[in-house]
Every structure is written in structure tokens, then in C-alpha cells.
């Protein structure tokens, strides 16, 4: 398949490992990945904060950038983020309509019909649960609210993770409870957000897993921010980074939550 990657603004700028792993994984599975460089952001932050008017040009850019998927130039658009996929699917057309842009809304709907979150693409479109990954570490998984309740990805990510060779997947208590991020909520209601984060990080620490994974870098940035501050040493890796890992090309464990090695430590992962 020819798959266009929407890297998401956050991962492009702050967590390039996630979209890179998405590319690595899909190419390893024999697909061609395209990165349309006109892309920037899906508009979720503006929409969720109530700035519909400011969201419109952002959405227009996203929709026009990925419009070729509606004409069959690409087979699908993949986003390594549950909340961004949710915004594409449930918000973009609505905001366009509210602005009186019915044509743009129609294009947005056509693009969104072929836009998939990573686990949806792998399981629903490509029909895979075993992607041939190898990741010999204890891992716990946070399902993220928008993947769970907006996209209804269900246990697709867990099925993918269970099929990873040598993984020690441990259940996260109260996994479906929100981590307290909520975009600008973490700033506007910082105290409440911190109280929620406290419970989430306690549950993560309780698993004893050195790696927390999820399908959304925004939630991982938030939980990771807490884990880093608490000096837990728990690392956050995107689901794609776990699934991209193989014996031949393992995804190494970073030293600390937000650290990154200067060059790949190929041997560390095999400990």
C-alpha cells in the first residue's frame, strides 16, 4: 500500500521517534510511506480550546495536504495518535461547516474516511496482529482516552503488543482512567491535572515496568513529565517504537524518561 503519514505536530517537533518508528514499521511490512511536507497540524488544539476561527486555516492546510488520499493517490493516511485521528474524524468537518465552508467540510470527511490511527491501520486495514516485532522488556500500556472512547480502538493495541516476541506485558491498574492531560486543561486547571497525574504515575510505578507505552505522544508527554519529575526512570515509548523493534534493529531503551542516546545503543536492548 501507499500510505501517507500525518506525523502530528507534537511528534514532528518534540518526539520524532514516534513517526520515525511508524515509517520503519510500515516499510518493514512492505509498504510505501509518503510524507507530504505541506502538513503541519490537524487543528485539534485550537478546536478543543474553543478557537474555531483560528482552527479553520490549520484544518484547511491539513485537509488540502491529505486530499489526494480521497482521489486514490494514496491508499490511506496513518496518524500515530488517537486524539489527532479523533479530531480528524469528529471535529474537522464540524468546524468547517460552522464556518460556512461546506466544500471543505466535504473534503475533510472524504479524507477522514481514509485516515487511521496506527493500531486501526495495522489491525483493520492491513489485517495484522503479529507485526514481527521483538522487544525483550517489561512494558505496561496506557490506552489513552481518545483512542478508547472516541475511536473505540478497543483491544487492538493490546493484541498487537501481545504478539510481540519476548515482551513482558503487564496490566496497568485503572488503565482507562484519564492521565489528566486534556491539552490546555493541564495549564488552565494545572492543580486538578496534577492530582490526576499523580494517580496515573503511581499506577505506572506499581507495575514495575521500565517502559510505559501508548498510542499518543501527548498523553505520554504528560505522564512522562510526571515520571521524569519523580525520578522514576520509567521510559515512555510510543506504540510504534515498540512495534518497530526487531532483533536485527531493536529499539533501545533510553536512559531516562526524556533522554535520548547520541547514537543507537544496539546492544542494550538485548540485555
Amino acid at each position: 500500500m501507499r500510505i501517507a503519514l500525518a506525523a502530528t505536530c507534537l511528534a514532528d517537533t518534540l518526539f520524532p521517534g514516534a513517526p520515525r518508528a511508524t515509517v520503519r514499521l510500515l516499510e518493514r511490512l512492505g509498504h510505501e510511506v509518503v510524507f507530504p511536507t505541506d502538513q503541519a497540524c490537524c487543528g485539534q488544539m485550537h478546536v478543543n480550546t474553543g478557537y474555531y476561527r483560528e482552527a479553520v486555516p490549520v484544518i484547511r492546510n491539513h485537509v488540502e495536504t491529505f486530499a489526494p488520499v480521497a482521489d486514490g493517490e494514496w491508499d490511506a493516511v496513518v496518524m500515530p495518535s488517537g486524539s489527532c485521528t479523533g479530531s480528524v474524524r469528529h471535529q474537522q468537518a464540524m468546524v468547517c461547516r460552522r464556518a460556512g465552508l461546506d466544500d471543505l467540510a466535504a473534503t475533510a470527511e472524504a479524507v477522514s474516511a481514509k485516515t487511521y490511527e496506527l493500531s486501526e491501520l495495522l489491525v483493520d486495514v492491513l489485517g495484522l496482529t503479529d507485526v514481527g516485532a521483538w522487544f525483550p522488556h517489561r512494558v505496561t500500556y496506557h490506552p489513552t482516552c481518545h483512542s478508547l472512547r472516541m475511536l473505540h480502538v478497543g483491544d487492538k493495541p493490546l493484541r498487537l503488543l501481545r504478539a510481540v516476541e519476548s515482551i513482558d506485558l503487564v496490566e496497568l491498574p485503572a488503565a482507562d482512567s484519564c492521565c489528566g492531560f486534556g491539552g490546555t486543561f493541564a495549564l488552565k486547571n494545572a492543580d486538578t491535572s496534577a492530582a490526576m497525574l499523580e494517580d496515573k504515575t503511581a499506577n505506572v510505578r506499581g507495575t514495575g515496568a521500565p517502559v510505559l507505552t501508548a498510542g499518543d505522544m501527548s498523553c505520554l508527554m504528560h505522564i512522562g513529565g510526571g515520571l521524569s519529575r519523580q525520578g522514576t526512570g520509567v521510559r515512555t515509548l510510543h506504540l510504534a517504537e515498540v512495534l518497530a523493534s526487531t532483533r536485527e534493529e531493536p529499539t533501545p531503551l533510553p536512559e531516562t524518561t526524556f533522554s535520548r542516546p547520541e547514537r543507537p545503543a544496539r546492544t542494550e536492548a538485548t540485555r
Binding site: L14, P16, R20, T37, L187, A194, G226
Partner: peptide, 21 residues
């Protein structure tokens, strides 16, 4: 408000699109 109870990641040395290019 964020950094009262959480760290922020430092930006990477290379964005994704730089790597892609």
C-alpha cells in the same frame, strides 16, 4: 503550571521532517 509537577522534554536535535528530508 505544567512544570510545577511535571518536566517538559527538551526539543530534539532533529525534527521528524528534518530526518525525513
Amino acid at each position: 503550571g505544567w512544570t510545577r509537577s511535571r518536566d517538559l522534554p527538551a526539543p530534539p536535535r532533529q525534527t521528524f521532517r528534518q530526518w525525513w528530508a
